[in-house]
Design a protein around this nucleic acid. Structure first.
Lengths: 144, 144
DNA sequence: AGGTAATAGTTGATTTTGTAACTAACAACG
DNA sequence: CGTTGTTAGTTACAAAATCAACTATTACCT
C-alpha cells in the first residue's frame, strides 16, 4: 500500500492489549453473566466489597478506575438483587457505605473460585517468566 | 471478609489486562476521534485496508476478530466520509472488496505515524525485555 | 434441476455506555 | 453566618454495542 510500510496492526500494543483483554474477559464474563446476570462493573463492585469489605462507591470507583455513573448503576443492580446493602454515613450524609449481604458474599466466594481456576487456565500455556513480566508490564501501563 | 482470602482483584489477569488495555486505547482514541471522528472499529478497518490493501469485510472481521455488524457499520461510516470504496466481486455478488480512497490513505498514513509515536511513548517506561515478553504473552492469550 | 444449508452483509430492536446536567450535602473563606 | 466552590451520588438523553432476524446470493447434495 505504501513505500515503507513496516507497520503491522497485529503488533500494535493497544490493539494487542485489547485483543488479549477481550479474549481473557469473555470466558469469565460468560460465567458471571450466566450464573448471576451480572455485567462487568457488577462483578468488579462485588469483588471489591468481597475483598476489602465495607467501601463507598467513590472508593470503589477510584480503586477500579471506573466512572461514578457506572458504579452507581452497578450498585443499583446489585442492591436490587439483594447482593449488597447501603448504609448512610453518620457524619457525612452524602456518603453511602456499601457492604455485601450474605447472598452477596456467597456469590463473591463462588466467583472468586471461578476466577482462580480461570486465571490458572489462562496462564497455563505461558512461560512463567513471561507471566511475571506480563503482570509487571500491565501494572505499569495501567499506571501504578 | 473471609477466612483464607488471599485473592486480589488488582492482580487478576482479566482485570489487569482490561485496565492496561483501556489506558492504552484511550490516548490513541482521543487522537483518531478528534482528528477524524472515528470510532475504534473505524480505525481498525482503516488500518487493515491501509496495511494489507484490498480486503473484504469478512476478512477484516476474521483478522481483527470483530463481529460482522461492527465491521458493516464501520465500513458504512468510512464510506460516508469518503475514506473507502466498495467494489462488488465479479464472481460472487455477495462479496464486496474494499479499498481506501486517497483521502483514506492519507488518514491512514497520518494515523500510522501517530500510532508509532504513541506506542513508543507507551513502552518508554518499560524494561525492553518485558516488552518482548508482553507481546509474546498477549499474542498467545489472544489465541495466535 | 430442486430443495436445503451456508455465507456475506445489512437492518432493527434492545441493552449498555458515555456525557452532561442535576440534587443534596459539606467545606472554606470572607 | 452567607456566598462560592467541591464532592457523592443519581438521572436524563444521546451515542454505541449487542443480538436476532432479515435479504440476497452461492454451495451442496440427491
Amino acid at each position: 500500500m505504501d513505500e515503507k510500510d513496516d507497520f503491522d496492526v497485529q503488533f500494535f500494543l493497544p490493539y494487542l492489549l485489547n485483543q488479549a483483554s477481550e479474549v481473557a474477559s469473555d470466558g469469565f464474563q460468560k460465567i458471571y453473566k450466566d450464573r448471576y446476570g451480572m455485567l462487568r462493573t457488577d462483578w468488579r463492585v462485588l469483588f471489591h466489597l468481597g475483598i476489602y469489605g465495607r467501601m463507598t462507591a467513590r472508593d470503589i470507583g477510584r480503586m477500579a478506575q471506573v466512572h461514578k455513573t457506572k458504579i452507581s448503576r452497578a450498585v443499583a443492580r446489585l442492591e436490587t438483587r439483594r447482593f449488597l446493602l447501603r448504609e448512610e454515613d453518620a457524619a457525612d450524609r452524602r456518603v453511602e457505605h456499601l457492604t455485601l449481604t450474605s447472598a452477596g458474599q456467597a456469590a463473591y466466594r463462588d466467583l472468586r473460585g471461578v476466577a482462580r481456576n480461570y486465571e490458572a487456565r489462562l496462564v497455563a500455556g505461558l512461560d512463567p517468566q513471561d507471566v511475571v513480566a506480563l503482570r509487571r508490564a500491565l501494572l505499569h501501563l495501567s499506571g501504578r
